[in-house]
Computed example of a mutant assay.
Amino acid sequence: MKLWEIAHSRTGDKGNISNVSLIVYDKKDFDTVSEKVTADVVKEWYKDIVKGEVIRYELPQLGALNFVMHDALGGGVTRSLALDKHGKSLSSYLLDIDIEME
């Protein structure tokens, strides 16, 4: 199942850091998503884009995970030659991850 079927996502940026949140629609899915969508999984998913560390923060009361991805925006908004300098499309890309629901 694709993450977009059970969650939505938002993105923010600061310098060369992208901040991507993953929020489940139904909190009953949070434990499974938490187990399957680790910082290592996200780092591997974005391996061609994110050159630095990926740190995951959990917000179970909101049914959300927050991933802070360092060295992710080609130098940052003022230096990047990318079409998506702010990395807003990174949230949509995260939702394309396949996970198995139990």
Rank of each mutant, 00 (worst) to 15 (best):
I6T: 12
P60H: 11
R56W: 05
I99E: 03
G76P: 04
S21G: 08
E102R: 06
N66D: 00
H86W: 02
K88C: 05
M101K: 15
S21M: 08
S80G: 11
A39D: 11
D71I: 07
D71V: 06
G15A: 12
V33R: 04
M69N: 01
L94I: 09
K36E: 12
S9R: 12
K85S: 01
K88F: 00
K14F: 01
M101H: 08
N16I: 03
G15Q: 13
V68F: 12
D71L: 13
L65N: 09
N19D: 11
N16L: 04
K2F: 12
F67W: 07
G15Y: 10
G75C: 08
V68D: 01
A72W: 02
G52H: 05
I97P: 03
A82V: 04
G74L: 08
K36C: 11
S9V: 12
A82L: 14
Y93P: 03
E35A: 13
T32P: 05
Q61E: 15
I17R: 09
D31S: 14
D31N: 14
L81P: 00
V54T: 15
G52K: 08
I55E: 02
H86Y: 10
V41P: 01
G74K: 06
H70R: 15
W4E: 12
N66L: 14
F67Q: 06
V77G: 10
G87C: 08
E44F: 11
H86V: 06
M1G: 12
G12C: 07
E35L: 09
N16C: 05
Q61N: 15
K51S: 09
I97Y: 07
S21A: 05
E102F: 02
Y93W: 14
V77D: 05
A39Y: 03
L59V: 11
L73T: 08
E58S: 09
W4D: 09
A72V: 09
H8F: 14
D96S: 15
E58P: 04
I99W: 00
G12D: 01
L83E: 00
Y25E: 12
W45H: 15
T38V: 10
G75E: 06
R56N: 11
K47S: 14
S91Y: 02
D29S: 06
D13M: 10
L62D: 07
G63L: 03
K85T: 00
M1A: 13
Q61F: 08
E35F: 00
V68S: 05
V77S: 10
V54Y: 09
K27T: 07
E102I: 03
K88Q: 00
L90A: 07
H86I: 00
D40I: 13
A72K: 02
W4A: 15
V54P: 07
K14W: 04
D48Y: 12
D26H: 09
G15L: 10
K27N: 11
V24T: 03
G52T: 05
N66A: 10
G87H: 03
N66W: 03
L73C: 09
G74F: 06
D96W: 02
I6C: 13
